[in-house]
Design a protein around this nucleic acid. Structure first.
Length: 821
DNA sequence: CGTTACCAGATTTTT
DNA sequence: TCTGGTAACG
């Protein structure tokens, strides 16, 4: 074992070796927080605490994984794998999987991501005959989400005078009702949204004493990272869990609290000291990350906030360079400046791509940087935006798997029932939902009993085929693993083939994505199989085997396929576990942080990370501080903390940039420089690129001199065709912009229909036996020849080559054709 | 029922 | 600029 206490400073040592009782570690930016946390866990284990008794809650899955590895490294054995480490959401989801039936949920409950949740809300709103323009699903979702994070249930929401006043004021009195219906609908679907993972777990602890004492006894030591970003629900859960042993250690920095929009509250830090006896407080104030200049600027900026926990960050690092303030004409110039500067720094100081991060307030700002980096052939990767599992094709495919696991999952069902098109359209789906509501059964059940509901024969047949297909997937799942089933699903549904046949760039991409999904499922299956072996050796922990206990809810879950319930459940459970895991995965978890590329992300996403060189971009009024967050002192202070967070991400060099104008919805808007720029202490700032002052005045980058100066040495070097081609291969072609289009537009002349006048006695023929080669007349398009027949028997499509109007696809069920010969 | 073409509305941050 | 929802048409 490594002598882990070596190399810790006195404060850090104190934090690590204080193991009993409540401990609060106030850890300034770059003060070695992660090191302290991991060492503390290792210390606990070295002192004989069983890994099974340690719970550590982190902010990201990535952080959890990293901590596990570091503990393993310190101890030099594999005990760390038994630790309970993860995000609040993933740890609770895992526990809930085994306990869900105790609060009435199926063990294989689905986790709804934000899209699913909004879609359910929208359904509910429409069913209540409310206007979804006024009750916008995303607004309502946010409102419900905040309520949940404050542990306010639908009942309390309805009766809380203050909340009702707010809703009245915004003229949305029905939100309480929507909340109620939404919660009921999720329950009926056997689904939990992100917030439910917290509040349902809380409910479990509150209402099921055995579960409470089970987990209280288990988690003898609890540690919470990023404590400043916890919300009341999380706070209460920890309070319950820690009540028996009171060995709760929280680590946080009030200056980095940036998630209040998600219900986080710094109050939790103050409350902590009230709720626990003799809270031991340790402050980590020595910064090991940044230069003196960077730290001085950060300290000065954050000092503008009032009411913080007293602390002074200091460092033994050198002064470093001054922070550079950069002003450009447009957002594109800002992009160009950053790309140029990266190129220059790489050449001059031998930096690698991965030493750079471009950080911004909103995801939309990434565009300009992408373009400029691509043009310079600098490899980059964007964090955030839509994650892999949010892509449409992936979600559609996964919906099949979701449906196999949990047939009550209405969102999944609606996604796949007519994808790919199989003749079950909107009208039919609406009817199904209606019947389901009337009879208070699931939509899936309506489908299985479709004969009872009087659908048209054709529709009935389509439904029947669909039901049979899904059932066959489910029964196949008893003998085969998730990967085999997934491949089978892809084949049976024709999804893979369809994408394969789509030869457009996007189609190709989608096809590759599906392949990647299948690979990841395979990887996961293999991985799980391995773990199973370990588990069989007796290391298995009970949460991973929820079906050891008998389970009454299981029956309604399973399909009426026969045989081996053991197999079914355990397979379904593992697939359920996989599905849960991927909905909780963020973009960042999937990407390799060590890859040699420039990182682009929002400041929120950069929390906890550090880089040699940082570009803090878009320091403009309206944008940063954001226009939506300047209405109260609290909001503004949070924006300032965000600014503090960006600054403190940098180890060696920091650029702060802003543009005079930038594109918004394709329109140019002008912004003033950010008010935060006025708070930068002159002494540590190099303003030579900012035109002399921080406010709009003098010359600036992009308008002339500074840009030219900079360009002189190293400008267009790598811009030759090959590199661009290479880059495009790697990153895809650059998005089309106004500038890349020819200035004259070649709008293809819209193929105009040449009028054809049919005879007054034009009679449509029976086209059910139409053959290729036959000559036909169309009312509008005139005479032509059938060149191709396709489509299904239900929906035959003829391609007709018209003499006057070229090839048209004619749907025989609707269009009228006269057979000439 | 399915496809397409057009128009409106959206951008704060995320598990 | 991009996306999703809808209307109109085949």
């Amino acid at each position: 074992m490594i002598d882990y206490l070596n190399g810790l400073n006195e404060r850090q040592k104190e934090a690590v070796t204080t193991i009993d009782g409540a401990l609060m570690i106030v850890a300034g930016a770059g003060s070695g927080k992660t090191k302290v946390l991991t060492t503390r866990i290792a210390h606990l284990m070295a002192k004989g605490v069983d890994a099974f008794n340690i719970l550590a809650l982190t902010f990201t899955n990535k952080a959890a994984k990293e901590m596990k590895e570091r503990v393993e490294h310190i101890l030099g054995n594999h005990e760390a794998r038994n630790l309970y480490i993860g995000t609040f959401h993933s740890v609770f989801a895992r526990i809930l999987r085994s306990e869900a039936t105790k609060i009435g949920y199926p063990s294989n409950f689905t986790i709804y991501d934000t899209d699913d949740a909004k879609s359910v809300i929208k359904t509910v709103i429409n069913e209540m005959n409310l206007d979804d323009k006024h009750y916008k699903p995303s607004t309502v979702y946010n409102r419900i989400s905040s309520a949940k994070n404050a542990l306010v249930n639908a009942e309390e929401y309805k009766t809380d005078w203050h909340i009702q006043q707010e809703d009245m004021r915004s003229n949305r009195p029905a939100i309480a009702q929507i909340y109620d219906s939404y919660a009921k609908r999720c329950f009926k679907n056997g689904a939990m949204d992100f917030d439910d993972l917290l509040i349902k777990f809380y409910e479990l602890l509150k209402t099921v004493p055995e579960s409470l004492s089970k987990y209280q006894r288990r988690f003898k030591y609890i540690m919470i990272d990023e404590y400043q970003d916890t919300n009341p629900a999380q706070y209460e859960i920890i309070k319950l869990l820690g009540a028996m042993h009171e060995n709760v250690c929280v680590v946080g920095d009030d200056a980095q609290s940036i998630y209040s929009f998600r219900g986080a509250t710094i109050e939790n830090i103050l409350q902590f000291q009230k709720d626990y006896d003799n809270v031991h407080l340790v402050k980590l104030e020595q910064n090991y990350r940044s230069t003196k200049n960077i730290l001085n600027v950060a300290n000065e900026v954050i000092a503008n906030n009032k009411g913080q926990i007293e602390k002074t960050l200091f460092t033994d690092n050198g002064d470093g360079e001054k922070i550079r303030l950069v002003r450009t004409m447009t957002d594109n110039d800002e992009g160009k400046f950053v790309a140029d500067t990266i190129q220059e720094q790489k050449l001059r100081n031998h930096y690698r791509n991965k030493d750079f991060a471009i950080l911004y307030r909103t995801n939309a700002q990434s565009r300009a940087f992408e373009e400029s980096l691509r043009r310079m052939s600098i490899p980059y990767i964007i964090y955030g935006g839509i994650s892999f599992y949010q892509r449409k094709e992936i979600k559609d495919f996964i919906a099949y798997l979701r449906l196999i696991v949990n047939p009550k999952d209405e969102e999944a069902l609606k996604r796949v029932i007519n994808y790919p098109a199989r003749g079950i359209g909107k009208t039919t789906i609406d009817k199904c939902v209606l019947y389901a509501n009337e009879q208070n059964i699931s939509m899936w059940e309506v489908l299985t009993k479709a004969q009872q509901f009087g659908f048209k024969a054709g529709t009935l047949e389509a439904i029947d085929q669909f039901v049979t297909m899904i059932r066959s997937f489910a029964s196949m799942f008893q003998k085969n693993n998730a990967y085999e089933v997934a491949v089978h699903v892809g084949k049976q549904t024709n999804l893979v083939k369809e994408l394969f046949n789509d030869k457009s760039t996007e189609g190709l991409q989608r096809y590759e994505n599906i392949q990647e999904l299948l690979n990841s499922i395979k990887e996961w299956v293999d991985d799980t199989a391995n773990r199973q072996q370990i588990d069989d050796d007796g290391v298995m922990i009970d949460e991973q085997d929820p079906f050891a206990a008998s389970d009454p809810a299981q029956k309604e879950l399973s399909f009426d396929a026969p045989a081996s319930p053991q197999q079914t459940t355990s397979n379904a459970v593992t697939l359920g576990a996989y599905l849960q895991q991927i909905t909780l995965l963020t973009d960042a978890d999937a990407k390799d942080p060590d890859a040699d590329n420039v990182k682009l992300m929002t400041i929120h996403a950069a929390k906890g990370l550090e880089f040699e060189c940082v570009f803090a971009a878009g320091l403009e009024e309206q944008l940063f501080p954001n226009a939506l967050s300047i209405n109260t002192r609290e909001e503004l202070e949070e924006e300032r903390r965000l600014f503090y967070v960006v600054i403190t991400r940098a180890k060696k060099k920091l650029w702060i940039s802003y543009a005079n104008t930038r594109y918004k919805f394709g329109q140019i808007v002008q912004n003033e420089p950010s008010r935060f720029l006025d708070e930068l202490p002159e002494d540590f700032i190099d303003k030579s690129y900012a035109g002399g002052g921080s406010r709009n005045q003098g010359s600036s980058f992009g308008s002339g001199s500074a840009f030219d100066r900079l360009k002189g040495g190293f400008g267009n070097k790598s811009n030759d065709y090959d590199d661009v081609a290479k880059a495009e291969k790697r990153y895809g072609a650059p998005p089309k912009t106004a500038s890349s289009k020819p200035s004259f537009s070649i709008t293809p002349a819209r193929p105009q229909t040449i009028e054809h006048k049919p005879d007054t006695d034009f009679v449509a023929s029976d086209t059910s036996n139409l053959q290729e080669g036959q000559r036909v007349e169309h009312q509008k398009f005139g005479f032509g020849e059938v060149v191709k027949m396709e489509g299904s028997a239900h929906n035959p499509i003829a391609t007709v080559k018209f003499e006057l109007n070229g090839e048209k696809k004619i749907m025989l069920n609707y269009a009228k054709l006269r057979i000439v010969s």
